[in-house]
Design a protein around this nucleic acid. Sequence first.
RNA 1: AGGACUAUAGCUCAGUUGGUUAGAGCGCUACCUUGACAUGGUAGAGGUCACCAGUUCGAAUCUGGUUAGUCCUACCA
Length: 951
Amino acid sequence: MDTTYQPQEIEKSWYKTWEDNNYFAPSGEGDSYCIMIPPPNVTGSLHMGHAFQHTIMDALTRYKRMQGKNTLWQVGTDHAGIATQMVVERKLAAESQQSRHDLGRDAFIEKIWEWKEESGGTITRQMRRLGNSVDWNHERFTMDSGFYHAVQEVFIRLYDDGLIYRGKRLVNWDPKLHTAISDLEVENKQVKGKMWYLRYPLADGVKTDAGDDFIVVGTTRPETMLGDTGVAVNPDDERYQSLIGKFIELPLVGRRIPIVADEHADMEKGTGCVKITPAHDFNDYEVGKRCGLPMINVLTFNADIRDEAQTFNTDGSVNNELSGYIPEKYRGMERFAARREIVADLEALGLLVKIDENDMTIPYGDRGGVVIEPMLTDQWFADAKTLAKPAIEAVENGDIKFVPKQYENMYFAWMRDIQDWCISRQLWWGHRIPAFYDNDGNVYVANDKDAARAKYGLSPELELRQDDDVLDTWFSSALWTFGTLGWPEANERLNTFHPTDVLVTGFDIIFFWVARMIMMTMHFMKDEDGKPQVPFHTVYVTGLIRDESGDKMSKSKGNVLDPLDMIDGISLPDLLEKRTGNMMQPQLAEKIGKRTEKEFPEGISAHGTDALRFTLAALASTGRDINWDMKRLEGYRNFCNKLWNAARYVKMNTEGEDCGQAGGDVSLSLADRWIISRLQKVEAEVSKHFDEYRFDMASKALYDFIWNDYCAWYLELSKPVLWDDNASAEAKRGTRRTLVRVLEAVLRLTHPIMPYITEEIWQQIKHLAGKTGDTIMLQPYPVADDSKIDSDAEAEIKWLQGVITGVRNIRGEMGISPAKELDVLFQNGGELDKTRLESNRAFLSKLASLSSITWLNAGDEAPMSATQLVGDMEVLVPMAGLIDKTAELARLQKELDKLQKETGRLKGKLTNEKFVSNAPADVVAKEQEKLAEAEKALLKLQEQYGKIEAL
RNA sequence: AGGACUAUAGCUCAGUUGGUUAGAGCGCUACCUUGACAUGGUAGAGGUCACCAGUUCGAAUCUGGUUAGUCCUACCA
């Protein structure tokens, strides 16, 4: 073994071994345990957030697998409609200056499939490097043929159940991507805008109560006035009572539009008069419906002004009577240009009253990044309210639990006020909607044209045309838990693994994905008795991985870290290229470059997968974002090195020796009994933390045990036995056996978090521990044995540690060389101290580096010494030639101060009548004991102080 | 506007039903290459638990409020 841990040399081969031997596949035995991977974007790559979630999923999967469960971690990727289509469109434009329309739909989709084949391996390669134990035999894709069937089946059944409908509605339209998007895909941003107050002339010579022949409306979007079909005032607004039912003559257009009464008009706001544009504003749309106003669409799908407006009745049917006239000069104008023009023209007409600065929020498309336009289009919708009902109940009654629990509130808040879900997208990449139209516009929903004709009893000759739209990507991801398991075909895999156990995901997709998965699953998956099945029992919600100063990682900030660079390291030039190459905003490159050079002047060194995983686990406290810390990663790389070297030590001292594999009598030392006892406790602790999803605490327990108990104390305590020529064969055998058995157990205990190093070491020492399996990953997970907990041994080791650290403290504070062996004396000890001293002389001498230990009986003369208390016993280090008076006085004074503070506090507490009479008896007793101890110690040290001072 | 979360050592964070001398890692100081490990060892310094009230014998922990920050939802003609 190397003297330092070299991860890259061991990691690659082990993954291959595991995969080649099919260890990741479900065993087929035992209770099932299943985690569904949140499918990453097929053409993307994994970022730190994935590495984080995958570490948690893999740790759980390996833990359960070792516990003997029939364990499946289902793997797969998502076709990610908009994102993927955009990437390929950009590529196409860059490579051949073509748009997707130049290629045509079929050829373009072909291109995307090619790109998927080409880049789809990135994620799977990354997952293999991360050590993820997924079942590669059943990898799925949200557009594979099985999923295609599942999606069709779901769509058709929902339609037949009346839970999917088609209609002309106002939807969020992305003018850049030319598609409708759902409410969730809209990001509202704070911007400083303007409010324009426009004068609308009253028609027919009508005057307001104030005698004006106009009213004033306020608007943030003057260009939409071309599509105004009314002006609303509040029915209770006395100022405008007489105007209700009267008409406005719409400027620039000349259309007569009515003044209607509707609560939407707020008397407090603006002038109390609101222009109503039902085709371009969600509120106005509702007002229009209530007041029976027609709808006039003045924008193209590009959000330019149309040449002629489209006119519709309130119910969405085409209206042929209304004029679609649009003044010539605005025709074809871009929306913001039209706004400027219209404002200017109104001003010229004397119709612009004033302009106010206005803070407002503007909707942007989360993908395209342009301002969303409410647009009147034909779309497909899912009846989310109906589907949400059982999904809400499942969380209310605890069938599904969120960890941490606070996310349930977020879930409820959204679900209880859910709006119908627009599921159609005007894209090419995705699941095409299985709906067909005849030439009269009738809709038939079925798998294909023939099925439609058969289902609806249509003539075989009837010409049918499939809907051009595809489904929202989240529609197919919503079927993930059962679609991946082979639904709609009934099969063993589905029966075995559904419902699944835990979903590990980020809070940012609770609405997008988690909620919809719950809705869809509960509608389609039923127990034999008809009770809806939940997709999973637990949703473990992770925080975001941010950079070291708490900023979100993003390409434009240039602070993105690639998990593989944490593992393999990366040179500064490569890192710079990665961060600044191929940027959407090249002007940021210089700044990012400088920042990167400052942060990583030497690049990033390799830390190995296990260190990365351990770091992520250690940082995974619940309900909190994580600020990434390179120092933490280094620390855990060092931890790997610690474990590695502990194993080296164990091998050096056991290889070729009798470790009791073949039986034989053993005698266990105090240290042996102690570490075995401690092992039971840490085993129980780690399992408990895994069960409670406290990966941070599990890591901490492992770290403490391995570094402090096993390495710092136990290995040191094993030396006096192993290196003692006079020690018995039974004693040596006992210590060797303990050394190797505890290591073997702790490797299994750690394996779920650090799979590689544990496998590597385990293979090298398994025979020494009498183990014969092929791989650690299929070994049983350690279970604590309470009968091996030895509180006497723990108490005695605590005493031993007290003495040793006491001597070390004097040594350290007095600046005595570690090489200088000391004579110490024990004074004032009891029988137990004496017994412990006699049985631990060897340990004490070695670990505290002592030349002699002298037991003083009562009345024995003690030399002037530096003193440490261990319980009632005083550990003395003679001062002659070693310790100067003032230094020792200072050291004692420090101790005295501490003790005085402590006794003061305790006395105050115990003289408080209320405390003594109200607090539980055991608490009072404990405090009294503490006080007694502290006072005794104080007295002794004061006495000692006096003696030294008198010198 | 409503809601959630966060505030603990120089930094990043633990602290489970109120009772610990408030912990860890990193960083810092001093010393040390001792036969697993300098990616190491030993010792040490460092905190008014954001602030103000309250409940309680007792509050980092519970309640209310204040301040600061993060996020979500909704709305703003």
